[in-house]
Amino acid sequence: MQTLVYLATCKENCSIRKISEATGISSGYLEQLMIPLRRAGLVEADRGVFGGYRLGRTGITCQDVLIASEGVFRPAPCKECQKNGLCKTHQIWSLLQTAVSDFSKEVLIEDLAAHLVDRGTGGGI
């Protein structure tokens, strides 16, 4: 999430080093985080002198990022539970899951980035 918000404030490609400085996330770990984000098309990368990362598209939501990096949010490990249809507490986890996904698909990375830019703390601007 931090990486995406930061990239949304950058006008040009951003190196891993620059992202690492802004987010405090180690370069090695960032490289790993980028793999599923690239696969999901949320970030794109160029090689070479002016290489680096940028957002893959506009309109990326927090839910897009969370699903790409952590998978679908499941508050309880009920998938394997055979009592799904019978267990009444299961409905509580569904409610929680729906609340989280409904909210996170409404929040745009760009909007979060705008808050950062408002404070003059965005990257690359």
Partner: peptide, 30 residues
Amino acid sequence: AIEEVLRLHFYRPLDEQVKRAFAGLTLADV
């Protein structure tokens, strides 16, 4: 700064949304 923006503009309102979703839900409803 990025963590703070995420906390104030994503995680905090997300928590409020969860709280609203559960508002009034009792053991009897379940």
